[in-house]
Every structure is written in C-alpha cells, then in structure tokens.
Design a binder for these strands. Structure first.
Lengths: 141, 141
DNA sequence: CGGGATCCGGCTGGATACTG
DNA sequence: CAGTATCCAGCCGGATCCCG
C-alpha cells in the first residue's frame, strides 16, 4: 500500500469543498486540494528546491548556487512558502556571519517521492514532447 | 523498473543545457526539463484535465461540467497546450452540432501515473498543510 | 551571509460577447 | 456544441538597492 496508491485510502474524504459537484468517487480531479498543491509545488522553483533539499540539508547561498538561475528574492520567497506549509524547516544559527540551514520535514520528504517521479517523467519524455511541440507549431505555421 | 524509477535510466542524459552547473549526477533538479514540465502540468488546470481524461475519453462540454470552475477559454487553452505537447489527442466529428472528443495519448497516459500520485499526496496531506499554514500565519500575526 | 524593500514588465487567467 | 476575440485585473518573478 506504500509503493503505488493512485487514490486515497478509504476513510479519507476525497474533498471537503465543492461537494455539489457530481464527482465520481473514483477521482479527485475536482478536489481543490489538487489545485492547492499545484499552487505550491507548481510554481517556477518550489519543485527544484524540494528535489535539492531531498539530497540533504542546505544553506541559503548553497541552494542559490546549485539551483542556477534563481534570484535571491525568489529563493527566499520559495523557501518561505515551503516553510509556511510545513514542508521545509528553517534553522538559524546566530553567528557572525549568520548561518541558516534548510531541510525537508517529514511531510516534505513524503512529497519528495511523487515530485521526483514527476521530474523523472519530465526528463524521460522531454525530447518526445519537444518534437510534438515542433510538429504542432509547424502544422499550424 | 516500471513501478518506481525515481531517476532516469542510464544512458539517458540528465540535462542538455546548463552543463556548466556543478550538478551531481544523482539529481535532475537543475535540469530545465523539470521546469518545462511544470510549466505544462503546473498551471491551474492541466493536471485536473489529465486526471479526468485518465478516466476515459471526454467531450468538450463534458469536461467543462466535470471540472467545475474552469472557464470556456481556459479549458480550450489547456486542451490546446496538452495537445501541442502530444499528451492529448483531439478528434473532431464533423456533424451538426459538431462533436469533439479528447483523450490521452500514450505519453499522456504515462503522465497520468505520476500526476495522480501527486494528486493523491495532495489529498492525503491537505489538512496537515492547512494546519501548518494557519500556525505559521498565527505566529507571524 | 541571508535576507528585506521597492519598482516594474509580462504573462495568466477571468468575464463577456460573438460565431460556424 | 465548441469554440474565437477582446478587454482587463492581478499576480509572478526579475532587477536593483539596502541592511544587520
């Protein structure tokens, strides 16, 4: 029950809002929670941060160097957002200069798995997708 | 090798750009493909559409009713985007009134698995996340 | 070192009206 | 039924400067 549970366990309510939707219980597509998690992990940087922190605890500028392309501001905002949702723990060491470490919480680590599988899917299919995209654009001129 | 491959197979290049990044081969976090796939599936509606089409072929207004909250314009744009990337196949039956069916392609179905697992994760952890969010906001006033 | 404050352009997505 | 066209607000994210 741990390796592949495409749908939530019994007893877990599918959705707490939008109960007026004629949603078959076989799906959670209409559940706002799906949209909510995408707002968190689906922005430009969160997923990369989660993947990186899945490798181990990291300092701020360490993440900044590794992620490559992320601005200071966006790294701060992304980490704050993940911290707010309880996915990342922020540890401040009041030294001079200050030291701040970030690491995944238990929930954050549980997110790492589906997120990394989505990342793996992206890597595996990127050429085919790029090709399909080119074909589509070429057909439409 | 089919059930859980968190990382790409050997022989599959991790990344074709950003080769100057000191990326350990154990991770694909810095790969632009990860960002690319998030731009596709990470928008407001694509994931829900993919989940819904995973249940079977659907007509336009059928999807519109089921997804609940999506506008006509956004459903069109979302479906076009997925079609452009080769994830969705669009079949037009030139009748009066016209009939258009949408279904996942093979790649689209392969996406369904990681996407639905992410959706399941969202449903399973939404209360904990909402609680953490409230705590964070309360602590910050 | 690890941020916060400010400014700003561009894209996302909603509302509405119209069409074959 | 299945779109297209237009307008527009809001947020996302980059650049820059400052700070303890």
């Amino acid at each position: 029950m741990d390796t592949a549970t495409p749908f939530p366990q019994e007893g877990t309510p599918m959705c707490d809002r939008n109960t007026d939707v004629p949603t078959p219980l076989e799906s959670f597509g209409a559940c706002p929670a799906v949209t909510d998690v995408l707002s968190r992990v689906g922005d430009k940087w969160s997923m990369q941060v989660v993947i990186r922190l899945g490798e181990g605890s990291r300092r701020f500028n360490e993440l900044r160097r590794i992620i490559n392309g992320i601005s200071q501001r966006m790294l701060t905002r992304t980490l704050r957002g993940l911290e707010r949702d309880g996915l990342v723990r922020r540890t401040v060491t009041p030294s001079v200069p200050p030291r701040v470490d970030y690491e995944l919480t238990d929930i954050g680590r549980s997110l790492w798995k589906p997120v990394s599988e989505l990342g793996a899917w992206a890597v595996e299919h990127r050429q085919v997708i790029a090709q399909a995209r080119d074909d589509y654009d070429a057909a439409a001129q």
